[in-house]
């Protein structure tokens, strides 16, 4: 997959956003990050993304609202929501709005990779031969 489909990361918290980008980088998965849902939606119009990883609570358009808009736009793009909330109703709300997964912060890398593999991403490219 030389021309890997891009993954979009949306989180208003810079440290979290950067850490997710770095994780995807070490997995050799190209990504682009956004600090607000609005910024992502502008870029989304170009149709350059194959997957979205988004925070739930953000200033402006939040995660659930973003899911609704994505659905309205009709794109079949899978969305993985990450949230610090452990509230069941929040998770249900997210899933009912069409998310592929709802992960709780701090997320475990394996968990995210599991979902990305399910989406067909090759997450083992950078692995050393020793492993």
């Amino acid at each position: 997959m030389s021309n890997s489909p891009r993954i979009a990361v949306v989180d208003d918290d810079e440290a979290v956003r950067e850490s997710l980008s770095d994780l995807l980088q070490v997995l050799d998965l190209p990504c682009r990050s956004f600090d607000r849902a609005e910024a992502f939606l502008t870029a989304y119009a170009s149709g350059a993304f194959t997957c979205l990883i988004t925070d739930l609570r953000m200033p402006g358009i939040g995660g659930v609202e973003l899911l609704r808009r994505m659905k309205a736009l009709g794109g079949p793009m899978p969305v993985i929501v990450i949230t610090s909330s452990t509230d069941h109703s929040t998770h249900r709300d997210v899933m009912e709005n069409g998310a592929m997964a709802c992960l709780t912060k701090p997320i475990r890398g394996e968990e995210l990779i599991h979902h990305l593999r399910a989406l067909g991403y090759d997450c083992d490219k950078g692995r050393g031969g020793g492993r």
Binding site: D13, A15, V16, E18, S19, L20, D22, L23, I82, S84, K105, P106, I107, R108, G109
Partner: peptide, 8 residues
């Protein structure tokens, strides 16, 4: 938030 960043 910072904890999530640290773990990742």
């Amino acid at each position: 938030q910072p904890l999530a960043a640290i773990v990742t």
